[in-house]
Design a protein around this nucleic acid. Structure first.
Lengths: 346, 346
DNA sequence: GCCTGGTATCAACTCGAGTAGATCACTCGG
DNA sequence: CCGAGTGATCTACTCGAGTTGATACCAGGC
């Protein structure tokens, strides 16, 4: 019956078959297809008010929507952006994705999402796929610290590298000052009187060094402290869980831990509890990212928050907004320490 | 040298400007454009092996990628699906989005993501937008219990309604048996000896009844118990927080609470702790969704898990997979109670 | 009455790829 | 030695919208 209704309405006024095209509108309004175009997009030529009204009417009656594919073909732009991230399930990335979607939508762009699941091959595949789809730009949060520039280069699509610490010549890139952020957090821990501070570091497939590790080192060195134990594991909750277990089992068990992501901290929290210990009483904790989850854990996590919205807006703008024409550059954003209770503050 | 090769080939023969088209490939390989098409997609006609090799060569050398816009225009299909959800930041939806992306990618479809942010107008706008972009189907998790069918109908795009409890005639829809799931959880709480069980119910803009509320009622009735206090608030963490505060302040404070989402339970956990009480000691807790976060909270949440992957696959398949041609129908999935510790189990 | 200048509109071409129908080159049987 | 038959390939049209370079129309000035 729902399959009946469209039929009857078809009989009375609407398209006999398939979608309504510009031609149908033109015929209905008694004008040429060019005029319809002019009306639809305030076209390059003026249209008499009376004619415009007729056309608008026809559009409404027939329910015409311009075919985006045809438009994209002619204009060479799909008004679409691609976002490639390791995993949308990670709260940090989902927050980021939301911000990117907002920024893109504000400029009339749609967002194609793809997850690389920490897999380089899949990441590369996604880039090619997006390239073939004529996206107007891609935002890439690579699973590699040093992204697969070659595939982006040959695809020669405007792009921004996300979560990028260093400058990547010839590319737009965006990132936060990891070292400075980590340093802030570790210094805060030191301020609480801790002298043995461990590090739970996340790993990437490339395995190259991360600024957070450096920031932790720098803070300890400047305070004249010895480096506490380090573990390397996945950036996610389960990675944090094993990091926590290892850190607690280390010969010189730390009294405080800095984790390279909120998710790791969540995992550590669990390991600490299972060991019958208390945060922050036995182990103080600080971490990195500033996702919503950090606020609702117990205890609420002291974390280095990344300016996600600003970064997303800057990334989108560098592709299709104000910054489009500008030469590629690296944008470094400052982080902010959000002090809650996992560090020992009341 | 990988970055060199394209360069040198550029100098000798490759595109002087802009993207490589089928025509360029044809010229380079010394064949007609039709043959290139045949090769690219195992075309409707056979090509001699030798010719095929030449063409493949040309494609590789020139770095040709077929223009998806042109393809979409000709074929009337963009090989793209649209997903509209309230908020990707909600772990349940991000899990779902990931599963949908996987299922779509497996079939060669890309996924356009849009958030409606609980706003009906934005939701409707997103539908129109996706329709104009010639997506081959849209998956809609409406902010309304009863989605805005009219806008989908006039857009007449294949679609699936997600999180849909009831049958929506003429539409594909997918959902879990909310009432049965809720009932399981509440019965489990009853099994722990609780006789005063409260309900933290999430609200939608439409405000119509939800099966979870019914399941809670049914379980209590069948056990001969009186209904505990109810609160209505947002489905998210902050909604749960206020629900928790209200429930704790109610005249007959419950000893157990069933929350309509994991996120609400997380918020309740916080409210309970701030009141100096313990979960599950003072207040037992069970909830609904089965997101990852429920596993890593403290205590781990006993929750009704939705078969997200299966649902995502079914949704995608009904649009572009095996189920494409079939008449629209409602698919109800069973839930499973994941017992952890917030209910009082060891 | 005729020309000028402007305005409103239109016909026709384009974007890049898919494909039906025509064309060409061969081989083989008679 | 020729026609039929089989492959391989090409020509040309199509999808729907944007846009340029005509064209039609009208008012006003001489």
């Amino acid at each position: 019956m729902a399959s009946m209704d469209p039929m009857t309405s078809t009989a009375t006024q609407a398209p006999r078959s398939g979608p309504v095209t510009r031609k149908d509108v033109a015929r209905y309004a008694g004008v040429s297809t060019a005029v319809v175009s002019y009306v639809v997009n305030g076209g390059p030529k003026r249209v008499a008010p009376a004619t415009e009204a007729k056309v608008q009417d026809a559009i409404r009656v027939l329910g015409y929507r311009p075919n985006a594919a045809a438009r994209a073909l002619k204009l060479g732009s799909s008004e679409t952006l691609g976002l490639i991230i390791p995993d949308i399930t990670n709260p940090f990335f989902s927050l980021f994705a939301h911000a990117v979607e907002d920024a893109a939508a504000a400029l009339g762009y749609a967002l194609v999402l793809s997850n690389s699941d920490g897999n380089v091959a899949r990441e590369r595949n996604n880039v090619r796929n997006l390239a073939a789809r004529q996206v107007d730009g891609v935002l890439l949060a690579s699973v590699l610290f040093e992204p697969d520039l070659a595939s982006l280069e040959t695809a020669d699509i405007p792009s921004v590298l996300l979560n990028q610490e260093r400058d990547a010549p010839g590319f737009n890139s965006i990132g936060v000052d990891l070292a400075a952020g980590a340093r802030m957090a570790v210094e805060h821990l030191i301020g609480h009187g801790h002298t043995n501070i461990g590090l739970a570091m996340g790993t990437n497939v490339s395995g190259s060094k991360d600024g957070r590790e450096q920031g932790w080192r720098d803070a300890l060195r400047d305070a004249g402290l010895r480096e506490g134990p380090i573990t390397y594991s996945e950036f996610d909750r389960s990675g944090g869980y094993v990091a926590g277990q290892r850190l607690l089992a280390s010969v010189n068990r730390p009294t405080a831990i800095f984790a390279s992501s909120d998710m790791q901290a969540i995992g550590i929290l669990r390991a600490v509890r299972e060991a019958g210990l208390d945060v922050p009483g036995d182990i103080a904790l600080a971490c990195f990212d500033g996702s919503v989850e950090s606020e609702y854990s117990w205890p609420p996590l002291t974390t280095v928050v990344q300016p996600v919205t600003a970064m997303a807006e800057a990334a989108v703008a560098s592709l299709v907004g104000a910054g489009r024409g500008e030469p590629p550059r690296h944008r470094l954003f400052a982080t902010e320490l959000k002090v809650r209770q996992s560090c020992g503050c009341p």
